[in-house]
């Protein structure tokens, strides 16, 4: 009962925050709306007793990705001065498509019999250990685990290449002034 109420409350907050994130013209405020949505997501994970996932959600999405977004915003010029139209002129069509898809999803979710299933029981208190075993088990997820590390390495290389512009010279700024002390 309490859980249902909390779910409703958090869902409401998340929807409102999502609206802020989408409609607010101030980019930093919009980011804060996004952070609130992500935080609500983590709380929902806690309600589902997926504690590890909740913490990973906060550490990765709020602790790293949201900060990256803020940095990206701060790098752009004229931030907060972007007063162009916020709505594309085809927005009614977008609304129809999004609403239709959402409605269809809702329809199928309500009809899906799996939604009526009761939870299988108490969550294993050692599920983090089970997760760790599964991650390095050859019968489990060891290939995705190692591929993930390669993928992240590739992402890092790509990101640095894009941000640095493939430059090999030392630094984007002129070095020290002529004849400075060493």
């Amino acid at each position: 009962m309490v859980t249902t109420f909390l779910f409703g409350l958090i869902a409401l907050i998340m929807v409102l925050a999502a609206l802020v994130a989408v409609t607010n013209r101030n980019l930093v405020r919009a980011t804060m709306g996004l952070v609130l949505v992500l935080f609500g997501n983590a709380v929902l994970f806690v309600l589902l007793e997926a504690y590890f996932l909740a913490m990973a959600q906060i550490i990765i999405y709020i602790g790293a990705i949201a900060i990256l977004i803020v940095f990206a915003i701060m790098l752009t010029r004229h931030v907060g001065e972007d007063w162009g139209p916020a709505f594309h002129r085809a927005w009614p069509w977008a609304l129809v498509i999004a609403g239709g898809l959402g409605g269809a999803l809702l329809f199928w979710m309500v009809r899906w019999p799996g939604g009526q299933n009761t939870p299988a029981g108490q969550v294993d208190p050692n599920y983090v250990q089970a997760l760790g075993q599964a991650l390095v088990n050859p019968q489990g997820y060891v290939v995705p685990f190692e591929v993930a590390s390669v993928l992240l390495l590739a992402a890092l290389i790509g990101a640095i290449y894009v941000a640095w512009g493939g430059r090999r010279v030392k630094g984007p700024y002129p070095q020290r002034a002529e004849g400075g002390e060493r």
């Binding site: 952070v35 983590a42 504690y51 913490m55 906060i58 709020i62 602790g63 050692n126």
Partner: peptide, 19 residues
């Protein structure tokens, strides 16, 4: 049972306060 990760996660709040 996820205490260590909880501490790291709670620390992100402080970063946002400063930002």
């Amino acid at each position: 049972n996820v205490g260590v990760l909880y501490l790291i996660a709670a620390g992100t709040l402080g970063i946002f306060a400063i930002l």
